[in-house]
Design a protein around this nucleic acid. Sequence first.
DNA 1: GCCAACGTTGGC
DNA 2: GCCAACGTTGGC
Length: 140
Amino acid sequence: MAFWLFKSEATTWSWEDQVAKGDAGEEWDGVRNYQARNFMREMKIGDRGFFYLSQKDKAVVGIVEVCAESHPDSTTDDDRWECVDIKAVRAFSVPVTLDQIKSDDRLADMVLVRNSRLSVQPVADREWQVVCELGRTDPD
DNA sequence: GCCAACGTTGGC
DNA sequence: GCCAACGTTGGC
């Protein structure tokens, strides 16, 4: 099982919006970046991801799970763009802020730190464990 | 609100 | 196929 990070803006798609979709989940649509799309193509059902809020919050706030593998993005007719579906698994006990992540030596290589603009990114196993620990949340 | 970093587009 | 111009993202 692989780990990922999905970036959203709370004003566009919040954690509460994601939770409201329940186990049915929702398309992670709107991605128009090849790197991000390619990562989604690699995802398998059951893979886990962090739900990160950019801009105002700048924090990881919860864990999601991939519940449908890559398929055409329903928000465009352009067949270059695909997306997966994800569902909320659980909220973090405490959000883990970008500041915390940047100041933790163990997370220095996170894509979030190295390439802040990429909206869908891989997370290393070790990074997954550390961020869950900082969020005082069960990593499984 | 600014701007650096990055990705994409289009002229040559 | 290169690269200048432009648009967007996201941290500050």
